[in-house]
Design a protein around this nucleic acid. Structure first.
Lengths: 208, 208
DNA sequence: CCACACATCTTGACAGCGTCAAAATAAGAC
DNA sequence: GTCTTATTTTGACGCTGTCAAGATGTGTGG
């Protein structure tokens, strides 16, 4: 959209660069989707924005903090996606769940590198997630559990199963299919719809 | 077990080191399970085996080829595991599937770094898998599809679903749960059994 | 038995990475 | 207008994967 110069002119009350932090985030997101987490180096990022190698360190403690900040935006984006689907009132619960499921896989397929960052080992494996990121990510699963409970009460899902386990299994399925897709293992983008339908058939009981 | 010196003495008809290749593989597997893919560097590996930094390059074209060779051994290990379970004749089909499912998750939980290597993006994302690795990994899913077909015929799984999609979804579920576990996301080792039971309940129809 | 060919291993080098310390620069406050 | 503070840069260190060239040991053909 607009370049950094115009931003500088707009905000004006800023320091040397304008606002390096958001410029870095913007460029980093672009680099992420272009070349993945492995291809995102702080040096190339700084170069792209036009500052020296160590300039980013005054806005992010280290690379991990930058990655967490990017992931945060990813969660924001996905959450608004999910809310929009779940807020619908003119479709059946089954259809709503189907859309939710497919939209989750779709988000992963369309933003593979972002999804990998949000739900991959880079951040979560060695507990390197920022407090801010945790504050957005943790409620994400909590909501999944609550929704599962509601779906059970509505007779959409088996009421016999423990809610937490059911939520883990159903989310695990979405996560697994997403990962198979984005890692290019035995699954193809063109099969997304059929896979989702199949999964929903297994999880959702027929309406009475 | 035995150190390289004794191996050298045993095999004897070898060159400078004995057999560097298998020593490297052995040490690399140890380093992998100790500190993960990220912690496995060729230089530290060479140091550990007691050779110079570039010695490994005469046995593996590059790091990727070494990783593929390790993954191969992982597939071998898992396959023998799976065969043993599926060969049982004294238990019900349902129980057999349950054991298979739980054993898959168990393997991932007990060998998290190996699982990540075998089914993670490091190898598969940019099609960097060796021919040899492909020759072991691809039939692995093929077998999953064949088993799914058999389970459908036996009335264990829904015969209405397309076999390939069903195989993708059920394997996706195993893969997803495994990943949530080993990446430390919203799932705990102590819940493995319950999660597996829940998943099996969803996938397997009650016996008539 | 010796020389030659070859497999194997080592040393040196290069570019890239994340990150720290110290110096330079610009902005806002008094 | 000076001073404090925020921001940015330059220099450096150790780590990484990998290539080129040299050194060394092994097995083979004469």
């Amino acid at each position: 959209m607009q370049n950094t110069t115009s931003k500088k002119a707009t905000i004006k009350g800023s320091y040397h660069h304008g606002d390096l932090r958001s410029s870095l985030l913007e460029a980093a997101k672009a680099m992420l989707s272009e070349s993945g987490i492995e291809g995102l180096s702080l040096r190339k990022l700084a170069d792209r924005v036009g500052v020296s190698r160590t300039a980013p360190y005054h806005h992010f403690k280290d690379k991990n903090e930058l990655l967490c900040a990017i992931a945060q935006e990813g969660f924001d984006h996905w959450h608004s996606n999910a809310e929009r689907i779940l807020a619908q009132t003119d479709i059946s619960n089954r259809e709503k769940y189907h859309q939710f499921f497919q939209s989750y896989i779709g988000y992963a397929a369309e933003n593979p590198e972002m999804y990998d960052l949000m739900f991959g080992r880079t951040i979560w494996k060695q507990n390197s997630a920022t407090k801010d990121l945790r504050a957005i990510a943790y409620p994400s699963f909590q909501r999944q559990v609550e929704m599962t409970k509601k779906w059970q009460e509505q007779g959409l899902m088996s009421p016999q199963e423990d809610t937490l386990r059911l939520a883990q299994v159903t989310w695990g399925t979405m996560h697994g299919i997403a990962r198979l897709l984005i890692d290019g293992i035995y699954a193809d983008r063109s099969h997304i719809e059929e896979m989702c339908t199949c999964a929903v058939n297994l999880f959702i009981r027929e309406p009475d």
